[in-house]
Design a protein around this nucleic acid. Structure first.
Lengths: 148, 148
DNA sequence: GGCAATTGAGTTGTGCACAATCAAATGGAA
DNA sequence: TTCCATTTGATTGTGCACAACTCAATTGCC
């Protein structure tokens, strides 16, 4: 089989597929989230906040696997947009607590329409999506271990 | 089932899984490609060139689904690193032809060791990888159509 | 109590990805 | 031949992701 004869080809196809899918999803999210005034990474942050209402930057980083280099400016923009407030924690002054504003909370309802449209855009059935989630989860865990 | 009750959750898990996997792959590639002096997107460009030896920016863009905003500076850096040469096409002066240099060609051999290491790092079996490639390919196509 | 080590957030630097824009070149229609 | 719509790649602007680094606060040990 050609693929086994040429690992460069397989590598390209598998990893590029993940890369390309990620970017295609970015594109669809961009279209869906523009009216809400959010980018996809910002939407991910908001998802966490809609669930918990207040988190530290550290907790956000753990939930989304992002470091403060990415989160700090991103949260700054979210704050500038009026969706969140950032405050120093009283318990530990190194920590910054992020809270929803009324505006940020109000985004939840319109945002709740986005997922159905995204899932539909994938063209995949639910069983396929569930299996995909499982495979990617295992893959990411293995990759994360391999990188450390 | 909880997932069906809460599409925000499914959306997060499926699409975030793709996003997270893509970033985890980026991380592993970064580790593997540093010694070659390449980033992952640059590696993708080199892959195309190792196959065809000379392509236009337009062709690269089509192969990798990248526009000139991304490719132009990326190729500039590859040229600065001595791996490629960029020249205006004689047949159509709007076009720029990208060619490998000797240095760029010499990277092919060490680069050929990378894929096996990446595939191993995924922790997945070949059949799983092949199926994953298929699913992601279909998904990307659907997403690309949905975005247009 | 004092100090070394650790932690959490912010900053700097680099490269990437996309939208919008622009200038020069090209191809096709009139 | 002329005109004009389209094409090609470069540039500008914005946001993201990571590595390396900085600074202040906190922790843990002697």
């Amino acid at each position: 089989m050609l693929v086994l004869m040429n690992p460069l080809l397989l590598d390209t196809q598998i990893c590029f597929a993940v890369h390309a899918t990620s970017r295609a999803l970015d594109g669809v999210y961009r279209r869906e989230l523009t009216d809400l005034g959010l980018t996809y990474p910002q939407y991910l942050v908001m998802l966490v906040l809609w669930e918990r209402e207040q988190v530290t930057v550290k907790e956000l980083g753990a939930a989304l696997r992002l470091d403060s280099g990415t989160l700090s400016p991103l949260l700054k923009r979210l704050e500038a947009a009026g969706f969140v407030r950032r405050e120093r924690s009283v318990a530990d002054e190194r920590s910054v607590v992020v809270r929803l504003t009324g505006e940020g909370d109000a985004l939840r309802e319109p945002a709740s329409r986005v997922p159905a449209r995204i899932l539909k855009a994938t063209g995949l059935e639910l069983e396929e999506l569930v299996e995909l989630r499982g495979t990617l989860g295992r893959m990411t865990r293995a990759l994360t271990e391999a990188a450390s």
